[in-house]
């Protein structure tokens, strides 16, 4: 047979190769090198980490291609970059730059308040955020080859990441006990494509790799998300907004590998310096939350 480029198996497959790993937000080539040396499996190239987007406000857009190219040239690991929800031209530009993964991200200001990007039209794979199973399966239906639970980015508070992971895993557990005749109503209830509901039931997990994101700031946070059943973690502001990014990055990577070993977790958690200051989500005004972006 002729070889086929950028099939869904290769898109989903790259995410499978990232499993058990940490993807770190970086804003400069130097940070990208620090992340790679700390053992990151990929970096997310962006102009501002979510904590700064929150602080500075304004419209958050795709990063300057120049910065993304510099970061791509500085490391050998995969480089991801963010496009606004629904902004298919930002995605076209990121594909032209040959980034390895596009994150259609709620962290940026949405460009379309009803529709996401038709991700099947792209050769570059997409990762998308979700808060629950229905949202995850809608994104996969649109062509996402990887999912991440959203959490609440730029807060350093893991509570929403836990809520979203528990919601997805809980719905999958519920689904597995469901007889065939209940699946259509369940698909309708959660707003998900029926075929993907059936596939998820049969697999006992999402049909694509699922990482946790949004608020992970410590090795313990990362290991807890792994114990809750995700395949890996994104750490956004948590590393480069901390006192010692190289050391903290290294520790989070080790914690994700040895997430079931409390002795190693205790060892790597020692003397990491200051964690990012963070913001408590329970006292945050509703309009400041970004996880609700996405439809």
């Amino acid at each position: 047979m002729e070889s086929q480029v950028s099939t869904f198996a290769t898109k989903k497959g790259l995410a499978q190769m990232l499993k058990g790993g940490v993807i770190m937000d970086v804003v400069t080539p130097d940070q990208a090198k620090i992340a790679e040396d700390a053992g990151a499996v990929a970096v997310m190239a962006l102009e501002r980490v979510p904590a700064d987007i929150r602080d500075q406000g304004g419209v958050a857009r795709m990063s300057d291609p120049e910065l993304i190219i510099q970061i791509m040239e500085s490391v050998s690991i995969p480089v991801m970059a963010k496009a606004r929800i629904g902004h298919f031209v930002e995605a076209q530009i990121l594909e032209a730059l040959e980034v390895d993964y596009i994150d259609e991200s709620e962290v940026l200001t949405p460009a379309d308040e009803e529709h996401h990007i038709d991700k099947h039209q792209f050769k570059t794979p997409f990762v998308c955020g979700c808060r629950n199973l229905g949202e995850a399966l809608r994104r996969i239906g649109e062509g996402a080859a990887m999912i991440r639970t959203k959490g609440e980015a730029g807060t350093g508070d893991v509570v929403e990441a836990v809520r979203h992971a528990r919601s997805v895993m809980g719905d999958i557990r519920r689904l597995q006990n469901m007889p065939d005749e209940e699946l259509m109503s369940f698909a309708k209830e959660i707003g998900a494509p029926y075929d993907l509901v059936v596939e998820t039931r049969d697999l006992g997990r999402l049909p694509v790799v699922n990482f946790a994101a949004g608020g992970i700031a410590t090795p313990a946070d990362a290991a807890m998300m792994m114990q809750l059943g995700v395949d890996g973690v994104f750490v956004g502001s948590g590393i480069f907004k901390s006192g010692n990014p190289a050391k903290r990055g290294d520790a989070v990577v080790k914690a994700v590998t040895h997430y079931e070993d409390p002795e190693i977790l205790a060892e790597v958690s020692r003397n990491l310096g200051e964690a990012m200051v963070g913001r408590n989500i329970s006292t945050m005004p509703e309009e400041d939350k970004i996880a609700d972006r996405g439809w």
Binding site: M1, S3, V5, S6, T10, P78, E98, V99, D100, P125
Partner: peptide, 13 residues
């Protein structure tokens, strides 16, 4: 390493 290029060049054959 990465002899075929970046992800966009990943393939099956």
């Amino acid at each position: 390493r990465n002899a075929f290029g970046r992800q966009i060049a990943s393939f099956e054959t």
